[in-house]
Amino acid sequence: MTGHMEREISRLKKSILALAAVVEESVKQAVIALEKRDTELAKKIIQGDLAVNQQEVELEEECLKILALHQPVAADLRFIVAVLKINNDLERIGDLAANMADRTVDLVEDRADTAPFDLEKMADKVELMLEKALDALVNYDIKLANEAIELDDEVDQMHKQSFAEVKKQIRQNPEQMDAQINYLSISRYLERIADLATNIAEDVVYMIEGKIVRHIL
């Protein structure tokens, strides 16, 4: 009975990590597509999001099945609860990556070449955050999780700056408004991805320590 549950849980871990890999990659690809203005890649990402959604549903069902069949307690229960939440966050990140790809397609049509803010730096930071959060999940590493949580403030700051920058650009070049709004959306998506990565890191902390670290300053 216990052995059975252990197997199920290790399978669950593999599945959530597989989903994490897909989502992390789609974020990276979304950034590359945006930087290279690669509509082919962007369309591939939008397509790929469907598979992510499918995987999310399967994972959730798997979690519920384990909960119902095995009634796990303590660490196992925390793990499954964390997986349920991380699963949700990952799916949202996947959606945001697809949204970014959407904006990329729009931007190519708008023929807007340069972002009004340092998109690359922001994307790098967000990718780093996501990577740290997922590494923390893989290695049960509280230190990495905390590092990821700390990075969120920087990303928020960057988003604020890009907001101001976009506003300025629109005032100066009102004819480029469409493109600027697209860039603002992208900045917002990146900021949201960072938030969700923070959530994942917090869930990892919860899973390891059983302590809910959300909303603690």
Binding site: K14, L17, A18, E25
Partner: peptide, 13 residues
């Protein structure tokens, strides 16, 4: 260690 843990590349997995 499982592939999913250490090689986080969707296509590779």
């Amino acid at each position: 260690r499982p592939v999913q843990e250490v090689l986080r590349k969707a296509e590779l997995q």
